[in-house]
Nucleic acid binder design. Sequence first.
DNA 1: TACTTCACG
DNA 2: GACGTACGTGAAGTAC
Length: 945
Amino acid sequence: MTGKETAPFGKGSHLHLIDGSAYIFRAYHALPPLTRKSDGLPIGAVAGFCAMLQRYVENNNGPEAATHIAVIFDKGSITFRNDIYPEYKAHRPPLPEDLRPQFPLTRAATAAFNIAYKEIEGFEADDIIATLAREAAEAGGRVTVISSDKDLMQLVGPAVCMFDPMKNKLIDADGVIEKFGVAPDRVVDVQALAGDSVDNVPGAPGIGIKTAAQLIGEYGDLDNLLANAAQIKQPKRRETLINFADQIRVSRRLVQLDAQVPLDFTLADLVLRAPEPEVLLGFLTEMEFRNISKRVADKMGVDAPMIAAATAKGIAEKSAPKTVAPPPPDAPIDHAAYVNINTPEMLADWIDAIRAQGYVAFDTETTSLDEMQAELVGVSLALVPGRAAYIPLGHRMAAGDDLFADNRLTEGQLPLEVVLNALRPVLEDPAVLKIGQNIKYDVKIMARYGVHLAPVDDTMLLSYALHAGLHNHGMDELSERYLNHRPIPIKELIGSGKSAVTFDHVPVEKAVAYAAEDADITLRLWQHFKPQLPQSRVTTVYETLERPLIPVLTRMEMAGVQVDRDTLSRMSNAFAQKMVQLEEEIHAAAGRSFNVGSPKQLGEILFDEMGFQGGVKGKNGAWGTGADVLEDLATEHALPGLILDWRQVAKLKSTYTDALQDHINPDSGRVHTSYSIAGANTGRLASTDPNLQNIPVRTEEGRRIRGAFVAPAGKVLVSLDYSQIELRILAQIAQIDALKEAFQQGLDIHAATASEMFNVPLDQMTPEIRRQAKAINFGVIYGISAFGLARNLRIPRDRAQGFIDRYFERFPGIRAYMDQTIAFAKENGHVRTLFGRRINTPEINAKGPHAGFARRAAINAPIQGTAADIIRRAMIQMDPAIAHLPARMLLQVHDELLFEVEENAADELTAIAKRIMEGAADPAVHLDIKLVVDAGRGQNWAEAH
DNA sequence: TACTTCACG
DNA sequence: GACGTACGTGAAGTAC
């Protein structure tokens, strides 16, 4: 398929527009859940979809035949209508697990039939159809909309009709009148009044299509009806129309299709093209559709291909140019077979092949792990296993190659700008999937070069959705585990330690082998992991909680947060002075000089030389000198307290006031963290380089560091955090009525727990009793043990056991939850969050001390993980919801989101963000308890929090 | 590189 | 009856 043919659209032209999403759903529900035999990929909807397209193509002849055609799809579920009415389509049941992965394949199927397809973010397929129908009518041609969706009936007119493929029936203006009782141009008015329960359009209560049509017939149109509502005779109807006028107007905006969608193509691009037998049969063969292949082959007068055992062969194999000819299936990793793309012709060949296939594995090589500073050195591509290439772009002379110009680019590389301009259309093409390993990194790099990679798939996140808890998800580890292949270590190219060089100084030949291998491995991992999502029942997790987070985090990380260097610098100086002073006092108290930062030396002084009792040696024979130990000793001597003071200051200085300054990006003047999506087993994010999720807050001294995180002039920081989200989730998951009740009443949950446990009325609660209850509440979330509670509360173990017994007695559901969770883990090898996230528990059946850890982790994971899922959902919904505001989401700290917003928009931002966070579980999961979000704002993070 | 300590939720 | 424990992270510094 070249995709380059066009033919002008005008008088005598006939445009057919197929409602693709309707086709998919009909196909899905009409057929049993078929899977591809070779690998289990769910394929039923694709099969039905292809059959329907084939039937359409066969019947497209005669006087009504199309001269131009397109299949129009919905893209995403959030559109401008959600801004008008957030509840729009909110009652839709969630997509079936095995349907979503078929969406890209239906696009590929359409392409294989050589039919244009279109989808546009933020608009429904109906809007695109409306726009194309308008343009076609204006150009003097005719339009047939192939759909049975009544929402499209408003488009019918002299040049536009509909065809219902279910009933094989043409719908013209008379057909519309039959359905709605009014002419097509008043359909919107009737729908606005009648509402629609399927799309959750509210309409006017108590008024259906019949009544609506009658009213519109009487008053001419909706505006006139509402203007004269007071004259309506029937009292009930009159009141409804007056009281719900606004709701009716909103409903009209919801049902009114937008015929002005900005399009990046023209009608001429949609010219009818005959399918190319090789391409179409290639696709059908890859899908292993025997019947349709045979039928297509018969109709086209060619031989049907044999459908053999599964291979990774695809369309690329059938139509790819010579330089990208396919390797044999399951080719072993062969570094010599990788290609160095260094001519424009080769580049063009590869781009054509990528387009034809519809997906490509993609990887970047750069000079740094810091995406905000790294320079692009090359990109690699892989189409099918074994067939991968590297495009060197920024390789430079190795030092010493040329004494006078060792920073020059080496010969034989295509110019960076030329390559990026050539690749940009495919890398940004919504029809071409870019597959990466930790692709957020590559998305950020490319964004800095003006290329906006989308859509993307990520093998790291696929592995995370499938295997969280089993192992880490770095490429080397995944390759060894799942491909049985050890990739070239990066050390062999750039060295390590002090003598390490950057990738731009690696010779191109070595870079080709290394970089192309990465893309090759990524592609193979993708082929291995992707089909496993449905059978592990994590498709929804991957599609709604993992993949959509990539662009959200990309924006947050690239935005960064402003940090005031002067404040940090002054604090560092003050801390340095204080440390010197404390060191003198410490040496005096110890009676000799030693390295205060050495726990080993300190332990020897305290327990061997000074003779303190109660020391505990760790497994390496060194005395423990942790804060809890020193706090106990502080009552007996000045030294431990001084050490604690020194450690606090040293920590704040080295980890925060010093290190944060080094992380201020010289270009942006801001600090850019990096979030790892697949770092924590439970679904939490982790923040690195620097970690902005552990900025001090608990001590006064430390809180001053938060004061250095500031809003730029004219802006403020807004912080919103969930109140007690994990305890609320515990109440929900374990169904603890007393706990749920306390939350619904808005009580202080720790005080309420204390009251229940110790029979103390709330108005007589003391801080001490409350503190104990708080420790127990947290203990429960962590998989409580008497030992742990005793240590935390510094009480005897039997007393701690007494507390736990009483807690279980008063909240019997907790015990049951813990027992059931452990039993489930033992049975299934994993636990799940409320949203279906799977956390594997491989050690749960182990013997010995491992088992205790595994049990507590299994109890904690659904709670911590559900909270993580909820804030992920909030973050994903947040971007479109605040897009219209001068505001940016900057940081996530597990239960808190930090925003930067222009002062005059802070109120609106706070209201929207709060609403989204509190409603983030809906509609996927219904919670009995409500989520509560507290908000604050200020010039800096300390004030906002 | 392993271990300890300590910052956060 | 004993194991040795609160759950989840990342960074810095010392010691080997």
